[in-house]
Design a protein around this nucleic acid. Structure first.
Lengths: 190, 190
DNA sequence: CTACATTGACTGAGCAATCAGTCAGTCTGG
DNA sequence: CCAGACTGACTGATTGCTCAGTCAATGTAG
């Protein structure tokens, strides 16, 4: 087993434990043993448990953004772009439920709040999705509300619906996903 | 200070600490000292920390449901009832941000998942809000989607928007609240 | 004085992080 | 080609700390 394998095993085992049991239910000793690695090995690769978690978060966020961007219909009408992003978001989350649960745990923790504060107050929020909302607003296709509210109107329900599915409270099939994303568009369109 | 006062002080101090710092950041020793009470006194009133948290949750949930029900326009058109519930929800959460933060912490914890599972699978979910969605669906005023998805479409964005306000990422004024709730109605209406 | 409420030092469990030690793999001098 | 020195990735018992919960001692109301 190479050095990189161990690092990957540690990240994977941490992801799984945190997704299933929360930060509480993922002691370093358990992360190590599930990764078939000594307790100290974690600290060869990561300065602290916090750094491990932060690293994991950043990797998952990059993968998520890539999934939303993949196949992005940049030339089609804006409405189609919103629908694409919404569906991609739901499908990606359902495809990697562990990643989704981890991201949720992270967001609802002191880590998450701090991270978000940095991003928003640091003006670092600038990606394809922010662009999309700004353009649609300029073209008066969507309601005249603060961008953050529009984003919550669109993604808020999707987040809730995916959570309910992943936790086993509901079941999402393809047609239901499509119609839910359409409903989110109804919320923001003029 | 009477017996009841101490109980209330303990609950209040726990609420505040958990809302601000999460379950992690609310050790029983600190809850007790902030309540001007000995560490053992908590256990005169509550079997365990878990029971204390559960009790607190149930009290807050009752208050919240009361706030949504207050002034409920049971005779007006269904749309107006939705708007009333939506606005009441947002206003109440903004009025008691600590309660809101606590409820969020609770929902995003093992406690919350277990509680929710009991409610949903036990078929205990039957209140004025569920009634409202069912009636609107029977009258074909709202979309033909599973009730749980409709509820997420309506309340999901409100939850997100209130969270952003309470965490200081955004500011909600009255007109914005009104227009956001209207947008949530657009999401579910036919 | 009695019965009960309250206290806070204490206990044992569980935690993140450490570090002295191990050993497979690599290098070096003969 | 090989024996012996060396390296550093890896290990896991240990450390120091925090926490929920306990209980003997103390306070207090009737």
């Amino acid at each position: 087993m190479t050095t990189t394998d161990k690092r990957r095993e540690i990240l994977h085992s941490a992801l799984k434990l945190i997704a299933l049991n929360g930060f509480q239910g993922a002691p370093t000793a358990l992360i190590a043993s599930r990764a078939n690695v000594g307790a100290g090995t974690i600290y060869c690769y990561f300065e602290s448990k916090d750094v491990l978690i932060q690293t994991l978060y950043e990797e998952l966020e990059i993968r998520m953004l890539a999934a939303l961007t993949k196949g992005y219909p940049g030339t089609q009408p804006l409405r189609e772009r919103f629908i694409h992003v919404g569906k991609s978001f739901v499908r990606y989350c359902l495809a990697v439920p562990m990643d989704f649960r981890f991201l949720e745990q992270f967001h609802n923790s002191p880590h998450g709040a701090a991270y978000r504060r940095d991003r928003i107050l640091g003006g670092k929020d600038q990606d394809i999705i922010h662009e999309l909302f700004e353009k649609a607003q300029k073209e008066q296709l969507i309601k005249d509300l603060p961008k953050m509210i529009l984003m919550n109107l669109f993604f808020g329900p999707l987040l809730c619906v995916v959570r309910d599915h992943v936790l086993g409270f509901a079941t999402l099939d393809e047609p239901t996903i499509d119609r839910t994303v359409d409903a989110c568009w109804d919320a923001i369109r003029r």
